[in-house]
Design a protein around this nucleic acid. Structure first.
Lengths: 165, 165
DNA sequence: GGCTTAATGCAACTAGATTGCATTAACTCC
DNA sequence: GGAGTTAATGCAATCTAGTTGCATTAAGCC
């Protein structure tokens, strides 16, 4: 289960920007790549595969095949157009690699109640010192807990259960 | 695929220590719980579900059911006898919550080559500042890359491929 | 417009993890 | 020590994320 959010339909301007970015890689510009990259660029938060599947099968448009979506996401990451981060449950979340929405430069908080992912105003921790000969390829910090609303509701549930007991 | 390591058979002294720890929770002391906790306490590194399944089905002893293992691990974590950490691939790794092997007090490095998990001599990063009303429940840092031996081998492979090309 | 082949869509599959339910075995009481 | 209660277990089925193989489609080139 991933989080949901309302999103305006893909706008033409960002579609063409996404198209240009894809064309710049030298690979083929396909409907699937453009739509996925556009969705990532329009999203206010990192999206998981499921989010994108739901998002892109919305409304009258025909959806993108699950496997194609996986492959497009892999391709975007490989070509530097997207970043991938896995949360503690191991689900990959993707963000567009745009300078103005640079999700890799700050941390994310995942609410265990509603599943929402919130951008934190803090840089990721410095990489630790590794033993000699070891090479760092990546680092992911998963910060989780309850957001304001979920914490409020779970506290309310606990106190009402306490009254009934 | 998880890493492998040789481990001596469960010793009687640690079995009874594990048993006491389980009894102290007030819940039932079962063979499965004792064996799993003992395996975690004897392990030099965090173990994944698969490691434990292999480990506990070894030799003449009858194995523990996959589902039971999942439930026992959940129970151990719930009761503070074990810690859970998921790597970037989403596989949960478990460690015994013992003062002398306190894996939650330092970070782990996961080799993407051989899958080994190595304890790093560094404390986990300080928790980030959260927005008002948010509550932190947990934090996991996944540090990955190549260990000395895998880095050596992958470099050797690259350079030999380069010579043949 | 035709050709080439990268990209797609479909079906099948794998691994980690979960759920439902009947059975087993810890623990309690006598 | 034996019977009763019910938590814990074992089994089958299921779910979710992700992958692989292969035939078909369509992007880009001539």
């Amino acid at each position: 289960m991933c989080f949901n959010f309302d999103m305006s339909p893909e706008s033409n301007s960002s579609i063409s920007a996404a198209e240009a970015a894809i064309r710049a890689t030298g690979s083929r510009v396909t409907v699937a790549r453009v739509r996925v990259l556009n969705a990532l660029r329009s999203a206010p938060k990192p999206l998981c595969h499921r989010d994108l599947e739901t998002l892109l099968s919305n409304r009258r448009r025909s959806g993108i095949d699950r496997v194609t979506l996986y492959r497009v996401l892999d391709w975007l990451v490989e070509n530097g157009l997207s970043h991938r981060a896995a949360d503690a449950r191991g689900v990959s979340r993707f963000t567009a690699a745009q300078p103005h929405i640079e999700h890799s430069r700050h941390m994310h908080f995942r609410c265990t109640g509603c599943g929402n992912v919130i951008c934190l105003d803090a840089p990721p921790p410095a990489p630790p010192k590794l033993p000699k000969g070891f090479h760092l390829s990546g680092m992911e910090l998963d910060v989780r807990g309850e957001c304001q609303s979920c914490h409020y509701h779970s506290r309310a549930a606990i106190s009402s259960a306490g009254l009934n007991a």
